[in-house]
Amino acid sequence: MNAVEFIFAGMLAAATPFLLAALGELVVERAGVLNLGVEGLMAFGAVIAFIIVYHGGGHFLGFVAAGVCGALLSLVFALIALGFRANQVATGLAIGILGQGLSALFGKSYESMTVKGLPKIGIPGLSDLPVVGGLFVQDIVVWLSLLATLAIWATFAFTKTGLVIRAVGENPKAAHAIGYPVIGVRVAAVAFGGMMAGLAGAYASVVYTPLWADGMIAGRGWIAIALVVFGTWLTGRVFLGACLFGAVSLMSLAAQTTGLDLPSQLLSSLPYLVTIIVLGIISADRRLLKLNGVASLGEPFER
């Protein structure tokens, strides 16, 4: 398998933790809330799923529990940032620290242990294509993540639910005046984002690299938040961004195995450096951000 085939085959799986977490954060931010705790929510979901799968509970139960636990922890964020109108940046950071701490605490006795991943399912015909064939051989979670991407895109494009979420994020006062429950919509969005982050963490710990190591999320939660900016709050672009990061993280792997004479630390930093550079390029287009940005992002709502 050459490097190009390797990247096509692995890109979607590598992208899935980014994608799930970023889709969740996209919905949260569209509703006007900035939850910076994604890294901790992912770490928390990752450890819960790992413990359940390790003790034979199975992947399905592991994912469900990770989603529920992610949602519950994000509801703590909702209580404090939306209920008590605390600073959303500080609250998100605190949830992130708490989630990472809980993850390290619960995962302590599982360090370096492994579980079995998930089998791959190929699409007959397409998976035999040259070069890009590997793209069509993925595990069930990847296929479901693609469906989730479509569903979220359709929700924002066609449904009233999507419209209400956007109204609450753009102009909460007006949304309230028309009679929409601003806080209720925001709490629901935050819980959804927490669930998605929990699932993203679960995918990282029991499917993508089914081995427990403290700090295994390694900044992916933060990159997911950056992806929402890269995607200028649009579902399709967030998906493309996640694929780009899946490819970048594989490239650093591929470069290490092909014995390219670069320090491994430089390759490990590649996703972070790409984040910084792309963030600079996208943000420099102020018009683009203004056009698609969420007007009331991070501001507490008061009647």
């Binding site: 900044g219 630390q265 930093s269 910084i276 943000s283």
Partner: peptide, 18 residues
């Protein structure tokens, strides 16, 4: 470049560790 300082400064911390 108008980039969010939260994300950039955090990413630079991860780079600094490397």
């Amino acid at each position: 470049l108008n980039a969010n300082e939260i994300l950039v400064s955090l990413m630079l911390s991860l780079v600094a560790a490397q």
